[in-house]
Design a protein around this nucleic acid. Structure first.
Length: 564
RNA sequence: GCCCCCGUAGCUCAAUGGAUAGAGCAGCGCUCUUCUAAGGCGUUGAUGUGGGUCCGAUUCCUACCGGGGGCACCA
């Protein structure tokens, strides 16, 4: 609908960009534009005059019966109200299409979304939640918009940290213990290493040496590394299963190990390498960036070096239109440097975007650090959320079967965590707060899931299988029309989320949709409706509203259940 | 010191340069013999400070104040 009005508007104003938006309040129209405010000046008219003329022009030129009215409003808006019939017809179209809003417009375009990126040998903590669910949601959105999406879990499976882990294992490790609880033990070793390294600087060098050996192909270190990686992946899979998140590839940093030497050669040939304190750097003064270190004095590679190689690989192999790096704010400099070097190496054909987000800070408001043992484990957060959800289900809906309750608890617990994060768009840091994360009321995941379940409950009780009524002229009340309009805004909202790389606008839209659905629920008794034609139309409306909620939540990676 | 992010209601967050700055929580008052009260209705309450650009600034520029993060051999 939005694009249709834009087209009409474009015809009326001639050329140039036009922009239609849905105003906050209905008394400013169903759709609105501020174009008169922008175009009035060169015409010598006041914005309001310009808007009035534009409104009159459109009222005449628009297809008959499309609008109920088109009005100018101070200081110079043009507001559009759709006719009832337009709303009903447009809704009918949405109701007919199963894949409403899904587009094929970008069929041949590839987007690589890099997200989650856990480190092998360490447990995932709350910080990983943001990258994992934001990345997953963006991947879903781009798929919906018709892109070919590559979901890339770029594992942190290489680097000095493994030298440190290997050194720690060799010094204090107990093979039997590690076999029993691999990740717990490895994490303990890692923390101990950093703890003792504070007192014993030799340890740090030992760690670096072990990594160098690993990178040089030392058999024992290689074996240990493989073992740690295997165990880590098992652990990670459990978390991803709970989160309902999947990937197309787990190719991580270690994959690019073999590219390090040629890459350094290439950088040398480009003439952009400088020696500095034994290490090799790329000077980025011209771009007002600090120098980027690409090879350590001992000849071992670095995160950035591997990232350059990974970028090269992706561009050659997949020819993506965009690469989205869903990584925390704290790595801004790293990506500025990476993108700068990409430009120098002429690897900037793809649109490279650092999709950044604020840090999750501890309850004290400071950074959580695994290496110092200050961390909140993701598995604990998930477990706690699901347990709490289970308690609430028991309270609210005790009659359900235990198995059903478990399923609901998982959907609700995980949904609450995800929605809580995805509804926010700010780059600002989040201070970790159990209460807020596990709030199941108000503008929350469970609220949307609850709305869905309520709607489905009506349909179940109606004992009708035919939900295909198209007699939408029977639906005339303000709330019914408002709900229909909100539903067919769905594709516009998905497109907007994709353009802005933002999940918050989509979450806000779904919340508004749910508010309308609940208002409808409270004010319109459906099963008591005596007119069978209207009853069928109402059921059809409920069915489409529920589907839209379900589809929207699915884009955010949130499950819905029939009962809650 | 330099760079990045942020500062909106008591709290946690919204607001593609536009209209009367939106939600949720907490508070207060209603609302379950009616399709799930995880709900609905009502109500109290906010743009860090000073300049600037603009017809119009929470949004852009600038200075300051405050919080968080980063700044070479971690990732």
């Amino acid at each position: 609908m939005k694009s249709k009005i834009e087209e009409i508007l474009r015809k009326a104003v001639g050329s140039g960009p036009v922009d239609i938006f849905v105003p906050e309040k209905e008394n400013f129209g169903h759709y609105s534009t501020n174009i008169a405010l922008r175009l009035a000046k060169p015409s010598g008219k006041t914005p309001l005059e310009f808007a009035k003329e534009l409104a009159e022009k459109i009222a005449v030129s628009a297809p008959a019966g499309l609008f109920e009215k088109v009005e100018a409003a101070p200081p110079g808006f043009v507001n559009f109200w759709l006719a009832k019939e337009t709303v009903q017809n447009e809704f009918a179209k949405a109701a007919k299409e199963k894949t409403f809003g899904r587009s094929a417009a970008h069929k041949n375009k590839t987007v690589i979304v890099e997200y989650s990126q856990p480190n092998i040998g360490k447990m995932m903590h709350v910080g990983h939640l943001r990258t994992t669910i934001i990345g997953d949601a963006l991947a879903n959105i781009f798929e919906y918009l018709g892109y070919k999406v590559i979901r890339w879990n770029y594992l942190g499976d290489w680097g000095t940290q493994f030298g440190k882990l290997i050194a720690a294992y060799k010094t204090w490790g107990d093979k039997r213990k590690v076999k029993e609880h691999p990740i717990d033990e490895l994490q303990k070793l890692y923390v101990r290493f950093h703890d003792e390294a504070k007192r014993d600087p030799m340890l740090e060098m030992q760690g670096q040496a072990e990594f160098k050996k690993l990178e040089d192909g030392d058999k024992e270190n290689r074996k240990l590394w493989e073992w740690f990686k295997k165990e880590s992946l098992k652990e990670l899979d459990k978390i991803y299963a709970t989160l309902g998140v999947g990937f197309d590839t787990y190719i991580g940093e270690s994959f690019f190990e073999k590219n390090m030497r040629p890459l350094v050669e290439e950088l040398r040939n480009e003439g952009i390498l400088t020696k500095s304190g034994g290490a090799l750097i790329v000077n980025l003064d011209a771009l007002k960036l600090p120098p980027a270190l690409v090879l350590k004095a001992d000849g071992a590679s670095l995160y950035l070096t591997r990232d350059i190689a990974a970028l090269r690989y992706r561009i050659i192999k997949f020819k993506p239109e965009k690469i989205l790096y869903v990584v925390g704010n704290e790595q801004s400099l790293h990506f500025e440097q990476l993108f700068a070097i990409a430009k120098i190496l002429r690897m900037d054909k793809a649109e490279l975007k650092h999709v950044k987000y604020g840090l999750v800070l501890g309850e004290a408001g400071t950074k959580l650090a695994t290496r110092e043992g200050r961390t909140i484990l993701l598995k604990d957060v998930l477990r706690k959320a699901i347990e709490l959800a289970r308690k609430v289900v028991d309270e609210k809906n005790p009659a359900l079967q235990a198995k059903v309750k478990d399923k609901i608890a998982e959907a609700v617990g995980v949904g609450a965590l995800k929605y809580n994060d995805l509804k926010e768009n700010r780059n600002s840091d989040i201070t970790f707060n159990w209460e807020r994360m596990l709030d199941f009321t108000g503008d929350s995941g469970p609220y949307l899931q609850y709305t869905y379940a309520r709607l489905k409950s009506i349909i179940r009780k109606s004992q009708t299988s035919n939900l295909k009524s198209q007699k939408f002229e029977m639906l005339n009340s303000d709330i019914e029309l408002a709900l229909m309009r909100k539903i067919f805004e769905f594709p516009d909202e998905v497109a907007r989320a994709g353009e802005a790389l933002m999940t918050s606008t989509l979450a806000a839209y779904l919340h508004k949709l749910a508010v309308l659905a609940n208002k409808f629920y409270e004010t319109t008794p459906v099963l008591k409706e005596e007119n069978p034609v209207r009853r069928a139309a109402l059921l059809s409306l409920i069915s489409v509203a529920a589907e839209t909620l379900k589809n929207g939540l699915a884009l955010l990676g949130i499950e819905t259940t029939e009962e809650i």
